[in-house]
């Protein structure tokens, strides 16, 4: 007489399911093949005429939660551990280690910004109302970043946003999608670097529909403190209307000095 009351057939089926590989998500497949996720833009010739912008990267909607995949979590954790070790060893700068104030004596007017990436998402939040001009305040970079955030927050309404530096360190803000967004932006930066797109001063925007249903917009902003990224997550994709203002405001916040 069996005392465990375990059905052999059920057990075989259960074991089979436990041995199946963890279901991979579409998002993971994309992350697993960074070369196809972030297609390298066509080579840009620095000609006098308006330079041809990188080919639009058509992003597919991620259908499942990328955070759920164990490999991704593992990769993130390991990458973070490597970065922390490198920072501990002094090989990488500490996060939020912004350099002290320097008077920026050049009055470079940022050139008009033309977002080169075309979004394939159907609906766009209209942003037709005029925004107040941003005036950076504060003596330190962090204070001016705070003033930028105070200016941007009402303008971006329901959207969440944060600012990260070129190393992926958070300088301002938080987001419920922080991990996913950071990973995406970092991958995008790596891809852009590989294709040397920043050498032409036309850093492309990143627009993605996220698995959680929101939309990500990442705006690269070259500043004297290095390349910063303004990442905005929103329920609906943001229109292009105010993107130059956002970009110029963040650059102004970093460039200004009192």
């Amino acid at each position: 007489m069996q005392v465990s009351w375990i059905d052999e057939t059920d057990m075989t089926a259960l074991l089979g399911r436990l041995r199946d590989p963890v279901p991979s998500t579409k998002a993971d497949q994309e992350f697993g093949d960074a070369g196809t996720l972030f297609e390298e833009p066509a080579v840009i010739q620095p000609a006098a005429a308006p330079a041809p912008l990188p080919a639009p990267v058509r992003e597919e909607v991620m259908e499942t939660k990328a955070e759920a995949h164990p490999d991704l979590e593992d990769f993130r954790s390991r990458l973070q551990a490597i970065r922390e070790r490198a920072m501990g060893a002094g090989l990488l700068p500490q996060p939020v280690a912004l350099p002290p104030e320097e008077i920026h004596d050049e009055e470079d007017e940022p050139e008009e910004y033309h977002p080169p990436v075309v979004d394939d998402t159907p609906q766009v939040i209209p942003q037709s109302t005029a925004w107040q001009a941003f005036e950076p305040r504060g003596s330190s970079a962090m204070e001016r970043l705070a003033s930028f955030a105070a200016w941007a927050e009402p303008n971006l309404r329901e959207s969440e946003f944060f600012v990260i530096d070129d190393q992926g360190d958070m300088l301002w803000g938080s987001s419920s999608h922080q991990e996913l967004v950071l990973t995406m932006v970092m991958a995008w930066v790596a891809s852009s670097r590989m294709s040397a797109v920043f050498a032409f001063n036309h850093a492309p925007l990143l627009r993605r529909a996220m698995a959680s249903g929101g939309h990500l917009l990442a705006i690269p902003c070259p500043t004297r403190l290095g390349l910063l990224h303004l990442a905005v997550t929103s329920a609906e994709p943001l229109s292009d209307d105010h993107l130059p203002e956002l970009r110029h405001a963040l650059i102004a916040a970093m460039e200004a000095a009192e």
Binding site: L14, L15, R17, L18, V22, P23, P70
Partner: peptide
Amino acid sequence: MLETLSRFRSEGAGV
């Protein structure tokens, strides 16, 4: 227990 762990895996956990 195995059923529960099977669910974890179906939810994406790699344990």
